[in-house]
Design a binder for these strands. Structure first.
Lengths: 152, 152
DNA sequence: CATGAAAAGGCCAGCCA
DNA sequence: TGGCTGGCCTTTTCATG
């Protein structure tokens, strides 16, 4: 799908605030309400807009502690990788899991209440997974920037 | 603010799909439409729900390349840190910046088109910032899991 | 891509437990 | 305080030119 400047402008607004009405967007873009509506529908159909979500402040729901957990596996057979990925995906504390290059195989972003909850997570969930060779935790001191906006 | 089970249930739905109507939520929660409406308004007022956004598929807008960039600064004086943080926040390619513990001071999540764009970013943007002692790039091979949902 | 009309949902009173 | 009922009004949605 080709995305022109008007599509980008629409995406730009929606990635910041999806509650913006078609009328507001139409004003800012110089289009009619229907034109905006149809472009948005198309962007949804084509999967450019994957979903609409409410972002929840972790601080407000007792998830103040964010840890990046680097993980090295013992082997790199496809079967072991997929098994690990499937299990890790099922953990609700893990909000992100990246297969990466470098010294470690995976980086997990883990969100919990506090250090104690993290310890609990490590002991009861993570280390019960098989084939983990080693882990290294990086603790977040401060969230300097965090955004879901990817279009300028 | 105290958040009860009904609030959590509402948050649970909205964090997955903010287009869900109050009526649908009211059915699932056994509340009236207005009760749901007022709870949501309160959650917004109190900042539990920080914003509503459209999530855009990076693949579809030519941002297939995600890199974690670890950064070490030469000094840790407050002035230098805040200066660095401010500058890095202004970079659109940086969608996340964490101040962390460990060998490095910061971890940046950088989203660009490809390796070439990343090189360009490093040369023209990142390394022009002062007080950077060293960097280490970790490339994403695969996004195993990524979610904005933090409530079970 | 614009117009205009029908349908749906958000929103706000006033009322009740 | 927190929830319900009923109705206005904005917005979405879609048929048509």
């Amino acid at each position: 799908m080709k995305i022109d400047e008007l599509d980008k402008k629409i995406l730009y607004y929606l990635q910041i605030d999806s509650k913006k009405t078609n009328k507001e967007i139409s004003n800012d873009c110089g289009l009619s309400v229907t034109a905006v509506y149809e472009r948005i529908k198309k962007l949804e159909r084509e999967g450019v807009i994957s979903k609409y979500v409410a972002l929840i402040d972790p601080e407000m729901v007792d998830k103040k502690f964010m840890v990046l957990c680097q993980i090295k596996l013992v082997q790199h057979k496809k079967e072991i990788l997929t098994r690990f990925e499937k299990e890790v995906t099922g953990l609700t504390e893990v909000i992100e899991c990246l297969h990466v290059s470098g010294d470690y195989d995976y980086i997990l972003k883990v969100l919990v209440k506090d250090m104690e909850a993290y310890r609990e997570f490590m002991v009861t969930k993570l280390t019960t997974l098989n084939h983990i060779a080693s882990t290294k935790s990086i603790f977040t001191i401060n969230k300097v920037k965090q955004t879901t906006s990817i279009i300028l």
